[in-house]
């Protein structure tokens, strides 16, 4: 059942991971293929080139006025730097999601609702690590009900190059099924990698 709240999501990683595209797909799914409002703001400036990269998406059943995110309810980290930089903004009752292989978390951050998936590894197995963002979206759709999965699939089909459509839908499904298994307790989470 999709969320009735206004949810602030930050997806963050480094340039080339398709971070902005992941945000766009989430926004498209919410606004074009679901019945919600969404506002995506981008981080510009020197930090937007090459290094750290983030996209901020607000999803709400109501009109969104203030477009910036100060304290996200959901933080998705796809790089160590992104995690270190953004973790302090996450709301206490928020959800922290990360790529198992790319982020070493601190044990002190485990009070959040936490989920992790080796998204990049999954994507590599499916043929291209470029699809890690899509695997992550599938995983996100299973652990947090922001928009309907069908809407997300349509948004993916709409956003990726036509030739890679099927592969990307597979990537989404793989991430989503992994997430579902974990939520239902059918699968044991891999051991997270901690800093301390």
């Amino acid at each position: 059942m999709p969320d009735k709240r206004t949810v602030h999501v930050i997806i963050t990683g480094f340039g080339g991971q398709g971070i902005v595209m992941a945000g766009e797909i989430l926004g498209k799914a919410a606004t074009l293929y679901d019945t919600k409002h969404a506002t995506m703001a981008q981080n510009y400036g020197p930090e937007a080139r090459g290094g750290a990269c983030s996209s901020q998406i607000i999803i709400s059943p109501e009109e969104i006025l203030f477009p910036y995110i100060e304290e996200p309810e959901i933080l998705v980290c796809m790089s160590q730097e992104a995690y270190t930089k953004n973790i302090k903004t996450l709301l206490t009752e928020g959800t922290l999601i990360w790529d198992t292989d790319l982020v070493h978390t601190r044990k002190t951050d485990m009070h959040f609702k936490t989920f992790h998936i080796p998204a990049t590894r999954f994507a590599e197995k499916l043929g291209s690590k470029m699809m890690a963002n899509i695997v992550m979206l599938g995983f996100l759709s299973a652990v947090e009900h922001l928009v309907h999965a069908e809407a997300l699939k349509k948004a993916i089909a709409d956003s990726v190059p036509a030739a890679t459509k099927e592969k990307n839908i597979q990537a989404f499904t793989a991430g989503r099924e992994y997430g579902n298994s974990i939520v239902k307790g059918l699968l044991k989470l891999e051991q997270a990698k901690h800093q301390d």
Binding site: E24, T31, A38, T39, M40, Q42, P67
Partner: peptide, 10 residues
């Protein structure tokens, strides 16, 4: 302005 120019919405 910059925010309106760069923000993405429906």
């Amino acid at each position: 302005d910059e925010v309106v120019g760069h923000m993405t919405e429906r």
